[in-house]
Amino acid sequence: MSGGYYVPATSRWPILGSLALGAMMVGTGIKLVYDTGTPLMLIGMACVITVMGFWFRDVIHESMSGLYDAQMDRSFRWGMGWFIFSEVMFFAAFFGALFYVRTFAIPWLGGEGAKGVSALLWPDFVAQWPVLNPPDSSVAGPDSVLSPWQLPLVNTLILVTSSITLTVAHEALKLGERKTCRNWLAGTVLLGCCFIMIQGVEYYEAYNHYGITLEAGIFGATFFILTGFHGVHVIIGTLILTSMLIRIHKGHFAQDHHFGFEASCWYWHFVDVVWVGLFIFVYVF
């Protein structure tokens, strides 16, 4: 290369990826609306994952053959940074919904504030958060809510610890101590798996012992959409870190040049920060 910028050759992954995503979405839609179509959804999902695998394989290959220069590296950085910003805004929508409901809608329905006259429609409703008795008696609220100081606290500690272990792994990589890096990274993945399992236990408890369900009024709705999408992100993050572990094992990444690894760290820290927000606003307050 004569110092020029690397423009990749034609690639079949973009078009295959979009078709796969389309198939997955159509399958999901058919599943939701007509309660069939699961195979299409699963095939689509498998194809999306496969395409992503091949796509990243190409990128890794190009990167390992030294086709990327510092400018390309910066492009990846900007790209990943803004992608995470878009994820922040995705969660912002759910947090915004939570704050709106708690600050405005629930008090109004209970007779307080600028639109408190709405309580005429719901004479029996008492505004409180969490909403255990939704305005209409046809909606069954949760029986009780989870204490933040049990499993959620454990999960908070797990995620915060995992951020630290990941940082240690990153520092080790920068020093070229690959074995240390591998061990700490493996620890991080393990912590991620623990988090997911504990979250699973918590969901089981919520559904079976606390009556917190998706149908349980606005509390159930906000609880599950926030923790659920966060959980999905933890799962994705764990998968990313697992692939990083495999790559470390295979001897990828240079001491001073390993953006793939860094990007997964960014992502993991982002997931961590979201959890802290969740812990404070969904569980504690």
């Binding site: 329905l109 349980a216 709705a221 906000t222």
Partner: peptide, 8 residues
């Protein structure tokens, strides 16, 4: 869910 439904 009842994001947009006052009943919940």
């Amino acid at each position: 869910t009842s994001f947009f439904d006052a009943a919940g």
